[in-house]
Design a protein around this nucleic acid. Sequence first.
RNA 1: GCGUCUGUAGCUCAGUGGAUAGAGCGAUGCCCUCCGGAGGCAUGUGCGGCGGUUCGACUCCGCUCAGACGCUCCA
Length: 588
Amino acid sequence: MKTLLEMITAEMQDAFRKAGYEEELAKVTLSNRPDLCEYQCNGAMAGAKKYKKAPFMIAEDVAGYLKDSRCFETVDVVKPGFINLKLSPVFAAEYLNEMAGADRLGVEEVKNPKTIIIDYGGPNVAKPLHVGHLRSAIIGESVKRIARFKGNKVIGDIHLGDWGYQMGLIITELRKRSPELVYFDDSYEGEYPEEAPFTIGELEEIYPTASAYAKEHEDYREEALHATYLLQNGHRGYRAIWNHIMHVSVEDLKKNYRKLNVEFDLWKGEADAQKYIPDMVQMLKDKGYARYDEGALVVDVQEETDNKEVPPCMILKSDGAALYDTTDLATLVQREEDYHPDEVIYVVDKRQELHFIQVFRCAKKTGIVPRDTELKFLGFGTMNGKDGKPFKTREGGVMRLENLIREIDEEMYRKIMDNRTVEEEEAKRTAETVGLAAIKYGDLSNQASKDYIFDVDRFTSFEGNTGPYILYTIVRIKSILNKYRENGGAPEGLHVLPAEDQYEKALMLQTLRFNDVMETVYEETAPHKICAYIYELANEFNKFYHETKILAEEDETKKSGYIALLSLTKRVLETCIDLLGFEAPERM
RNA sequence: GCGUCUGUAGCUCAGUGGAUAGAGCGAUGCCCUCCGGAGGCAUGUGCGGCGGUUCGACUCCGCUCAGACGCUCCA
């Protein structure tokens, strides 16, 4: 179904046309003066110059043709030339009922569904997830759900960092500690053990140790680099270790992402792109895109319109090794072969923007992806602590994701136990549900591209613009609907009735906005606008709730209208939080 | 040095070229306290600065100040 703005804009266009003005002026927006009206059109002012006519006159002409519209209760022309609109309560109720009966609450799918790949600029294997990985997971998951909701085919690829120097480091450190392992015996020709010679815990300790050691010891570093080289060139034993590392790491990663309610369709990584590199490099050379610069193979991506220098895209180092430019390009080759995506969205730290500009340009220029493939960079800002500096543990180290989640869950658990007496088991589960909402909402309610301050106290609060507040509102509605059911009522199939007071109308108007909000959210890839919307919606509900006796209403018809409105509000809220990537408990 | 991004209330953040720039937290004082005491009202402070475009600018453009970040062989 059409969004509300589309419907009333159509009415407005009709009126502009009938009054002899061009339709383009007939843009209707949400009012910024709720005391005066609900929706407004400012087109008369914009048209004043063109028609050499006072805006007020134009507005009056147009308003004359709106008097009979079924959409509006009032149409006022004000001061310079504003056309102020109030929605007809009957029309609003009709719209809401239509929403309630439609698929996806009336949100239309896109006309031409796209195949979209989301690249989460993945974590490195063998390193624990830390807070830096939180944002790409949370934002990517939400963007994925939003795009799917609009009818696109979306493929999420974690895109692991599984092929670089860190692998060489781990192998080297492992060799130093246990040189007797068969992987290091070059004469060994048998099968390698199925069991990995380390646990995830050990792995997580090995990497930082090796990394630190290599910085201090040049020969060790050389060895690690050589091990990396051997691995990448098919050393049997190293390849076996690599398989172990992957297996152990991925299992652990899956466990952690499951806790975040984040899912990937693909667990590809840099290693998967390797086999595409040689042909790609050859192509770049053959077609004359690549040139040698100080021994390195590069592709120029500078464009005439640039007002700054854009360094060339580096394909091979002077020693012949591939780099991350190379891998990202080869990954695009692979994706083109496997999925032929219409769009690839990279949800990565915004500091990588220049790198992706280079890769995108190179991919387009050299035909690795077709011209009309959209390559989007969705850069997110840094998650800072309360001091405004990058988030750290109290000791100043990198905060592990598990610990952060545990901290939040414990805080939620305390609050839930304080509040009311629930079984410990339920409180624990609820704490996890609410805790996740607190984290995700805290992150997503900020614009993705900006740095933000992660404030545990604020995010876990049940008051204000927080996840828990939204969940509380949903739980409250659920509770009312359950009571209604217990008293023999059936919330299903009821109809919303025209609003009779301002609180009911306000709640209806806010609920109505859902489709328009989703339009904007999708077009702008802006999950934070969902947050802003449901916060307002929750507020409107709570005001309505406070002013209205719902279950105690004696007029059964009226009561059924309230229940229908609450059911719909609940569905809108639940749909929205699902798009944000979390859910509401039954009680809290 | 060059470039990108950010700058809105004491703090954390919204804000679609339009009318009187909004929330939350914190502060002060009230009200409600009933289907879940996570509710409502009132008071106070603000668009970094200077110009320009426009009938109209937090929003677009230029300059300037401040902060963050990035600038070929690590990702």
